[in-house]
């Protein structure tokens, strides 16, 4: 099939950037979206044009590196699928596809579709952990954890930190990402002693990074490749409120 691509090109963080049009010819329906871009890039490189830069690594939907907004939707039209797992059979011959970077003030564009997501790392550094040093941990079975709690924690822990939630949110809010981590630890006995502090510290850092506020659009949930639910946001709100009440009393 032949596809027309409208791609955001931006030389570096200071370049204003613009959409450019390319054509992808003879694309196999079995190729992945990124492989289609590989083909286009091979062509561009032959012509001496700097290829379209895009972040990608594992190409199996788990590392969270890929970060394309395809036709206005982070990771593209297929639900619960990262851009790297999207295949061209989701499109048809003659389609025009818009490819843009994740848009949020907290995710500045570095080049083309590559954005800087280190804000997420800094949120994690503020409190996304349980404070245990290596060594000295008690036997793994010393604290039984009900299966339901472990499963809930796992549901939240499935987050791959891709940032699609932020990109999809009309407010550029990171609540789903932060809520997922807060929820994971809030469900586990190991996470209890620090849970109030964790919620406050992570939220403070999130705000500091310039992410927007949650308007409960649920766009984040709709595009999350790991199907993290907005209830993690409610859980974080609860933890945050609890932490505030506790520290003021």
């Amino acid at each position: 099939m032949n596809i027309t691509l409208h791609v955001w090109r931006q030389k570096d963080a200071n370049d204003p950037g613009a959409m450019e049009v390319y054509t992808a010819k003879d694309v196999s329906a079995d190729s992945s979206f990124l492989e289609m871009l590989d083909m286009v890039n091979e062509d561009l490189a032959q012509k001496g044009i700097d290829p379209i830069h895009f972040d990608h690594d594992c190409r199996e939907g788990i590392c969270g590196m890929c970060s394309l907004v395809i036709n206005g939707v982070p990771h593209g039209p297929q639900a619960a699928t990262t851009a790297c797992q999207l295949h061209m059979r989701s499109f048809k011959d003659g389609d025009a596809i818009y490819i843009e970077p994740f848009r949020a003030r907290a995710f500045p564009v570095l080049k083309d579709t590559i954005v800087d997501r280190t804000a997420f790392d800094r949120i994690m550094q503020a409190g996304g952990f349980i404070s245990v040093n290596t060594g000295g941990a008690p036997d793994a079975n010393a604290i039984p954890i009900p299966k339901t709690a472990a499963d809930k924690a796992m549901d939240a822990a499935a987050c791959i930190g891709c940032g699609a939630c932020v990109a999809a949110c009309k407010n550029g809010s990171a609540m789903l990402f932060v809520g997922a981590k807060v929820t994971q630890f809030a469900n586990l006995p190991q996470g209890q002693s620090e849970k109030a502090a964790r919620a406050k510290a992570m939220v403070a850092q999130m705000d500091l990074e310039g992410f927007g506020n949650c308007s409960n659009y649920s766009e984040c949930e709709a595009v999350c490749p790991k199907e993290i639910k907005v209830e993690v946001i409610a859980r974080m709100n609860r933890e945050f409120l609890g932490a505030t009440v506790k520290s003021s009393s």
Binding site: T134, A137, P144, I145, P146, K147, D151, L188, Q190
Partner: peptide, 22 residues
Amino acid sequence: VNIIDQCVAQGVPFAREYGGLL
């Protein structure tokens, strides 16, 4: 054996049985 202890302490949500054990 220490690895599993360490990871559980960090909050790694390993699969569990209904009794709560790993």
